[in-house]
Every structure is written in C-alpha cells, then in structure tokens.
C-alpha cells in the first residue's frame, strides 16, 4: 500500500508493515499455517526468475562478446567477477572437474543473489504501488525482494545441499559415504555409529538451514527497516491531511536522512550477503570433497 493510500485510508503502522510483508501467493491472502505446500508465492517466483534471466542474459552477453583482445568496460567488469569467483573456487575446491560445474554455479549464485538483494534499494513502495494500480486493487500484495522470502533462500540452500550430497556420493562412492556417515566425526566404533550418524544429520541440516536463514534474515531485516523508515514519511503524509505539524516535518526529514544512510549501508550488506552465500556454497561443496 502506498503512502498516498495510507493517507487516504489511514492504516495503522502495523497494518502497513504486515501488508508489505504479505506475499502475493496462490491463495490471495496471507498464508495461514507456517508450512503449506499447496501455496506458492507468485511475487517471489516472478522476481527471482526475472532477475535470474537478467543475470544469465548479462553474463551471456559478456560471454558472447568476450575476446582475448582489449576488453571493454562491461567485459572487464564481468571478467573481474569471473576471475574473483574462479580464484575462490580454486582455493577451496581442488578437483578440477568439479570446478567446471561449481565455479559457474558460484558465479550465478553471486550475481543472482546480488541483483535480488539490490531490489531492496528500490523505493519500498514503488513496485507494490505500480502493481496495485495495474490490478486496480489497492490491497494487492506484492513483495519485490525475492531473497527476503525464506522459500527463496531455503530453495537455494537446499540446492546447495543436493549438490553436496551428489559430490559426497560421486567422490567417495555410495558405500564410502555411508561409511563416513557412521564413522565420522567421533571415530569408527559400533557404539559410536548412531551418534556419528545423528551428528552428520544435524550437520547437514544446520549447514543448509543456516545458509538459507542467514541471507533471508539479513534481507528481511533490511526490508523491514526500509519500511520503518518509509513509515516516517507516511506519518508526515497522514499528518498532512489534518494539518502540517513540526513533528511531521521532522519525520519527513528523518525519512530522507535515515533512508539515505540505510540505503548506502545496505549496498554493503547486499554485496556482502551475496558474497557470503557464494563463499559458503563453495565451502560446503568443498567439504563434500574431503574425507573425514
């Protein structure tokens, strides 16, 4: 809901925030239960797929134009990214054949997550406002930061988990991997086998959930703070219907100052979180290559 609407209908701050945190999903209203596999979030899917296509399109263009001669600025920028990811992958994953898949995967993850995070820098009401006017429904839901949806980030981290399992089996053999599940980390002993197995399960679960949760938490919190900052401007707009006040003007100034500061700081966060997600992807896949 936009500021103008907030002014017209005068929702409370709580209503404004919870409206903004509700996905456009297949049910048409906020999801009731914590887990419901029959529901699907259209906004997360749309933005992540659109940005995913943008990612591979940009990279593809760079790849098509790539020459060994003097590179243009765009090519050089993509090359810097490729070089960075390639060096990180070389340091973490020592198997050249695995790197041929894992390094491009890490590049995709980095650019894709960076761009999804960057949606946070758009004015928090802009795309929802456009959507509400397109649909003609002033209460239409829309969330634009796909990485601030737990489904999006856990989907990615589960993808990484699947790749880890695949490489565990590929490198160690299915028997070798099962053996490792029961003999590491505490050692090979029949009495320790169940404990080892439980520890391994906990490790995989913890890795995957923390991997997805870290990105989600950062982006969700960042989005929430943008909403809180927007509320300051919204308060001024609500004020404006009754008459201009000093506190309203100060809130409006606060919106500008805090919004600027937070957006600048957020540039660091979105880059850092994309980088961390990429590095952890490499580290987890690297661990799958190592025998205990």
């Amino acid at each position: 809901m936009s500021i103008e609407e907030a002014a017209a209908h005068g929702p409370t701050a709580g209503e404004y925030i919870s409206h903004h945190l509700t996905h456009l999903n297949s049910t048409g209203h906020a999801q009731q239960s914590i887990v419901d596999w029959s529901v699907i979030n259209f906004d997360t899917l749309f933005y992540s797929i659109a940005i995913g296509f943008l990612t591979v399109f940009l990279l593809y263009r760079a790849a098509q134009k790539a020459t060994s001669g003097v590179p243009g600025r765009f090519q050089a920028a993509v090359e810097i990214l490729v070089e960075m990811v390639s060096n990180q992958a070389k340091g973490i994953i020592h198997r050249e054949e695995s790197r041929r898949f894992v390094a491009p995967l890490a590049l995709t993850v980095f650019v894709w997550i960076f761009l999804m995070n960057a949606m946070d820098l758009l004015p928090v009401d802009l795309l929802p406002w456009i959507w509400q006017h397109l649909t003609g429904n002033p209460h239409a839901y829309q969330r634009v930061v796909a990485s601030a949806d737990l489904n999006g980030t856990l989907g990615l981290s589960m993808g990484v988990l699947l790749i880890c399992l695949w490489y565990n089996i590929k490198i160690k053999g299915f028997g070798g991997w099962v053996h490792e599940l029961f003999s590491a980390p505490f050692g090979k002993h029949w009495a320790l086998a169940p404990i080892n197995f439980i520890m391994q399960l906990i490790e995989f679960a913890a890795k995957t959930i923390s991997h997805g949760m870290r990105l989600f938490g950062n982006m969700y919190a960042g989005e929430l703070i943008f909403m809180l900052i927007a509320l300051m401007g919204g308060a001024w707009a609500v004020d404006a219907t009754t008459g201009v006040s000093v506190s309203g003007a100060l809130l409006w100034l606060g919106h500008i100052v805090a919004g600027t500061v937070w957006a600048i700081f957020h540039i660091l966060i979105i880059t850092l979180q994309a980088f961390i997600f990429m590095m952890l992807t490499l580290v987890y896949i690297g661990q799958a290559h190592e025998s205990h």
Binding site: I40, L45, S48, D149, L150, N151, G155, M158
Partner: peptide, 15 residues
C-alpha cells in the same frame, strides 16, 4: 516467514 512450494520452484530455477 511461511514455507510453501515456492521453495521447490526456486530450487529448480537455481539449477
């Protein structure tokens, strides 16, 4: 933060 099928769709897109 609710979980739903978006997760699997995202996984496929990722791959």
């Amino acid at each position: 933060m609710n979980l739903n099928s978006t997760l699997f769709a995202q996984l496929v897109v990722f791959f």
